[in-house]
Design a binder for these strands. Sequence first.
DNA 1: ATGTAACAGTTGCAAATGCAACAATCAAGA
DNA 2: TCTTGATTGTTGCATTTGCAACTGTTACAT
Lengths: 147, 147
Amino acid sequence: MSFDMETFLPYRLYQAAEMTGRAFEREYGARYGLRRTEWRVLFNVGQYGPISAVEISRRASLEKTKISRAVHRLQERGWLKRLYSKGNRRTHDLELTGDGRRIFQELTLMASEFNARFEDKIGQNELDKLITQLNDLQLLDHSTPAM
Amino acid sequence: MSFDMETFLPYRLYQAAEMTGRAFEREYGARYGLRRTEWRVLFNVGQYGPISAVEISRRASLEKTKISRAVHRLQERGWLKRLYSKGNRRTHDLELTGDGRRIFQELTLMASEFNARFEDKIGQNELDKLITQLNDLQLLDHSTPAM
DNA sequence: ATGTAACAGTTGCAAATGCAACAATCAAGA
DNA sequence: TCTTGATTGTTGCATTTGCAACTGTTACAT
């Protein structure tokens, strides 16, 4: 009876993710034909690449089938390539192409401008604190089933 | 170059929402056959009902087609009913049935237990502040297309 | 009152997603 | 070596979603 849904974490976070995600999508979506899954993969490869799909999955909490499909599409566009050089033939690392890096730079610029819009609304300290706490949350996620 | 994706709000929030949402889903999903959209609607009707679909859409940042479909399914299960009593025939309020209220109580119990697990991990204040700010921004955003 | 726009809810359909199953590869012990 | 189990990535298929278009209703300006 005393429970207030507005304090319920999954509900709140979904709301916030939905609002910010859609807002950002309106900006980049018009410019590039990028889906949300695709820029998430692109960002990960851009920032952490060369990196494998599984590693992206772990980092970004993305399902591996999503990644697999996003990689194919990004590859078709020539923004991403696979590195088969490793000894392990189950996996391969992913890396941005020249075009991919160019898009990545533009996107990160948009992203930091987007972030900046909230910084003065929330206050840098609160934002930093929140992000740190969200990072800690990830450690609690032990049993990712099919990812 | 100085941009760190881990500070990017839509990315971070998506991760956190995904992690917590899935974790909670593993608990209630086994017990009831509820999808995420459905419990969101159920929660809103339970807490704010009688309430219309549009009002839920505004509150919960849920697309109205999602709500429409979720309402149909919840109605089939007998957890939710429509109130046609109002003068305005475009819309109607939604309300939980007796069964619906029972489920709602069980779910809110699970939800507050779930929250309790994270209480010391995340600052409710920061999240509250963020959501409030996001809500304020959404009011200025008149171009929400189909919601 | 009448036409026009806005609104609430629904539906059609293409696209995205989730989950299980799969093939290929590797690891590690009997 | 051989076998069992894990790992990585991919596909098949059913379900869910997003977006636009639609119906029916109301508001509102002229």
